[in-house]
Write a protein that binds this DNA or RNA. Structure first.
Length: 215
DNA sequence: CTCCCGATAT
DNA sequence: ATATCAGGAG
């Protein structure tokens, strides 16, 4: 086992102690709700998505419910998450696909998820991992940022980062590792201004007090 | 690489 | 007032 792997192991061990209850920040009660919430979370904070989905999930229960309303109505209901026209289309098309191909159920398969409208690698990983327990690493902007700052990678390509993290970590840590990095990224290693003073893994961070994302 | 867009920190 | 945040599709 190389030193890179050991270092990563140490970092995630500390993060696990710091965030013992690390879980998705999105609120959901089913794979379907998680799928919708994650589509909405593109370029939007999880916090804001939760505000929107609180009402949304009371009104829309099944894929059919999203299809039968007019575009403008769905757009209004998801407005504040931004990119609402795109997202409304994605959600509607996605729901049609679910009905057509999967009897209205969310497929428990990464590749199948990726093919759904509005669902890219990150969303597919979130759903596969958190709704179905399939080992996956969701690489969102926090994971990209922290992976670079912590020196795991020198790249902004989410797929490369995902592959690298999978090499670095044992499979049972994959799902939780995303949550840990997202948690830490949101609370301490904040994009706008990293709180290096309060960072628990500062000693393992090559970017400490740099306040600037590498590359 | 550009477009899609509102919310919020500074 | 405005820079920055936050993924997917074409």
């Amino acid at each position: 086992m190389n030193s890179e792997v050991k270092r990563a192991g140490k970092i995630f061990q500390i993060l696990k102690e710091e965030y013992p209850n690390a879980k998705p920040a999105l609120n959901y009660k089913s794979p379907f709700e998680l799928l919708i919430a994650t589509i909405l979370s593109a370029q939007c904070t999880d916090e804001r998505v939760n505000i929107v989905t609180e009402k949304l999930f009371k009104k829309y229960k099944k894929p059919e419910d999203y299809i039968k309303v007019k575009n403008e109505e769905l757009e209004k209901d998801i407005f504040s998450t931004g990119f609402y026209k795109q997202k409304a289309k994605s959600i509607k098309n996605c729901c049609s696909e679910l009905i057509k191909k999967y009897e209205g159920k969310v497929p428990a398969d990464f590749q199948a998820l990726t093919k759904l409208p509005g669902v890219g690698r990150k969303t597919a990983s979130v759903v596969a991992g958190n709704a179905f327990g399939i080992p996956s690493i969701a690489v969102d902007t926090h994971v990209v940022r922290l992976s670079n700052l912590l020196g795991f990678v020198d790249s902004n390509d989410p797929k490369k980062i995902e592959i690298k993290l999978k090499e670095l970590l044992p499979e049972e840590l994959w799902i939780v590792s995303s949550h840990l990095l997202m948690n830490h990224g949101r609370k301490v290693c904040i994009a706008r201004r990293p709180r290096c003073e309060e960072c628990i893994i500062l000693n393992y961070c090559p970017s400490k007090y740099k306040n600037k994302v590498v590359k």
